[in-house]
Each structure stands twice: as C-alpha cells, then as structure tokens.
Amino acid sequence: MVAPTRISVAALVRDGLVLLVHRHPSRRWYPDCWDLAGGHVEAGELPHQAVSRECLEELGVQVHDPVPIPMTISDPSLDMHAFLVTRWAGEPVNAAPEEHDDLRWFRPGELANLKLAHPASLSSILNAVQVATA
C-alpha cells in the first residue's frame, strides 16, 4: 500500500475574506479549480514548515504563526495538513504562474458557488474564516 501524499495548505484570512488560488488548467492533479495555497511536505520537513515555504514560493509572503485547523477532504491518497494564517509579511501575489492562473479574496458566501479542488473542505474553510474573525 502506498503512503498518502502529505500536503500542507494555508487559509490566509484578512478582513473576513479568504485567499484562494485557481489551479492552472494544465495541472495534472485538480486542474481548473479553486484551492488553498500550499503543496507537498518535503522529506524531513514538518507540515508547518512546508506551509511557510509554500506560501513564500506561491504567494511571495512570509507567514507568521500558522495555526493548525481541521480540514475535511474526500481523497484518501492525501494526508492534508491545513493552517489558518492571519498574519504575514508582504502582499500576496501569484508568484507561481505555472501552478496558478489567478488568486482572489473571497467572502465566505461566495465559496459555495466555486468549483473547489476539495468540495468536502468547504465547511472547514468557512470555519477557519469564522475563527479568524471572531
């Protein structure tokens, strides 16, 4: 049996909005859909280290104090580690155009109408926004 792929993702939340990236249509996995920024946990790397590295690589921001949050997904081949991020240095930009063709801030009410990479994660993302704005 193959071990699940370890993934770390970040829910960046600011002013009640959550940042999502749009996965490029040419991506092998989950093409042409919205997702949280993040990626593979490298060998010898802890999930919080991976999410910090991925945010720097993909968004050009240095995250501070990522907080682990539960994340529900339906893909058993993934070991998902999600983090709520409310503090970071820099302004998020699409620093990985080969991976994403857009990034955008969304209000919680807009998320249900999006094609998400992991539709089962919707309630987890909404909970993260709620925690961040409480």
Rank of each mutant, 00 (worst) to 15 (best):
V2K: 04
T5G: 07
T5K: 10
R6Y: 13
S8W: 01
V9R: 01
A11T: 09
A11G: 06
V13P: 04
V13M: 05
R14C: 09
D15V: 07
L17Y: 08
L19P: 02
V21T: 02
H22N: 08
R23S: 12
P25Y: 06
R27D: 00
W29F: 15
Y30A: 13
D32E: 10
C33K: 04
D35S: 15
L36I: 06
L36F: 04
G39S: 07
H40C: 12
V41A: 03
E42Q: 10
Q49P: 08
V51W: 08
R53S: 10
L56C: 04
E58H: 07
L59C: 11
H64M: 08
V67C: 12
V67E: 15
P68C: 02
P70R: 12
M71D: 07
T72V: 14
T72G: 06
S74M: 13
S74P: 09
D75W: 04
L78C: 09
L84R: 05
L84T: 07
V85P: 01
T86H: 03
R87Y: 11
W88S: 03
A89D: 14
G90S: 09
E91T: 15
V93I: 14
P97H: 00
E99G: 11
E99A: 12
D101K: 03
L103I: 04
L103M: 12
F106E: 08
P108R: 11
P108K: 08
P108H: 12
G109N: 11
E110R: 08
A112W: 11
N113E: 15
N113V: 12
L114E: 10
K115C: 13
L116R: 07
A117D: 04
H118W: 15
A120Q: 15
L122M: 09
S124M: 13
N127D: 15
N127I: 05
V129G: 08
V131H: 09
A132I: 11
